[in-house]
């Protein structure tokens, strides 16, 4: 039971990384990235592939950060010519291409079976100490990511992103290069998700193509909508809530007679319905984005 609680908390912290990264894109800048899972995938597979070749886990994390940042910059650059909904579809297509490559290039990625037995930082630490170390690491990473995201959102960089989300023409008239800003925010947000992907892979020591399905992106959007899109605190809170729903649904089948094979779909259904309900009744989420006060007397 304690192990399970630690596991849930650790995964929630990892998901907070994804949510904070997507919030910088979708919440702060208004870029609906339907292929967000690609950044997670780049981080996860960088760690997996580096581990497969006997590299140190830190190298895997580093590769993931660099590659995802480049991928983010490329995707952000595409936003130059695309309307918002076209961009969303294109990002989805990019993520699906990535997944297809992962499934088919078995020599590199392990194919449909994925890569297992990946050694992480606490592989030698076993039992409760190991679980606790993981939890501390993930919570520290999530806290760091929160600090970074919150600082970025509050300073001029994020202010301009928020302006171009609401009033792109005004932003352009003030000398802000919209394409460059979109490219930069993606290049900065992507590594946050990639670190999440790496840590996740090292933690469960496995990565497979089924973790790159569009459903993962959808889960992160659900976290943002529940928590309050545009609000970093909301993103973290949403990650926690979704993780709790997921954990709670495990106990659902102790109460209701749900066959094992449909347990995962019931869980998805619950999450989907929660999201739908929020969209219909409270689209601004539990913590709505607030005005940012600026300290005048510094």
């Amino acid at each position: 039971m304690l192990d399970f609680a630690l596991y849930v908390a650790t995964i929630a912290a990892v998901y907070a990384l994804f949510a904070l990264s997507l919030n910088l894109q979708a919440g702060v800048t208004g870029l609906l990235n339907f292929g967000h899972v690609a950044f997670f995938g780049v981080g996860a597979y960088s760690s997996g592939i580096v581990a497969l070749h006997g590299g140190h886990w830190l190298l895997g994390v580093l590769v993931g950060v660099v590659v995802s940042s480049l991928l983010g910059a490329v995707i952000g650059r595409l936003g130059r010519t695309l309307a918002a909904d076209y961009w969303a579809i294109v990002t989805l297509a990019v993520a699906e291409c990535l997944r297809l490559v992962v499934v088919n290039e078995g020599d590199l990625t392990g194919g449909p079976q994925g890569i297992s037995g990946i050694a992480g930082p606490f592989s030698s630490v076993s039992g409760l100490a190991g679980s606790l170390s993981w939890l501390v690491l993930c919570v520290v990473l999530a806290a760091l990511a929160y600090l970074v995201a919150e600082t970025l959102t509050g300073m001029q960089f994020g202010r301009v992103l928020r302006l171009l989300r609401e009033e792109p023409m005004l932003a352009a008239s003030l000398g802000h290069n919209i394409t460059a800003e979109k490219t930069r925010v993606l290049a900065v947000a992507a590594p946050i998700a990639a670190v999440g992907g790496s840590v996740y892979t090292l933690y469960i020591s496995y990565i497979g193509p089924n973790q790159l399905l569009p459903i993962e992106t959808f889960l992160v959007f659900t976290m943002l909508i529940i928590g309050g899109i545009g609000n970093n605190r909301g993103a973290v809170f949403g990650a926690l809530v979704i993780q709790l729903i997921y954990a709670g649904s495990r106990f659902l089948k102790d109460i209701f007679p749900i066959p094992d094979q449909s347990a995962s779909s019931v869980r998805l259904l619950i999450v989907g319905l929660v999201l739908t309900a929020f969209l219909m009744t409270r689209p601004e989420g539990l913590f709505a984005e607030k005005l940012r006060r600026i300290d005048v007397h510094q």
Binding site: L152, M155, Q156, F157, R159, V160, L174, V185
Partner: peptide, 25 residues
Amino acid sequence: PMKMSVLEAMLCGAALPIGSAPVRG
């Protein structure tokens, strides 16, 4: 913008090179 205070909107018009650079800032 709806979600920005008047003061913040004013700051959007300023050139703040350090605050605009994500890593340096």
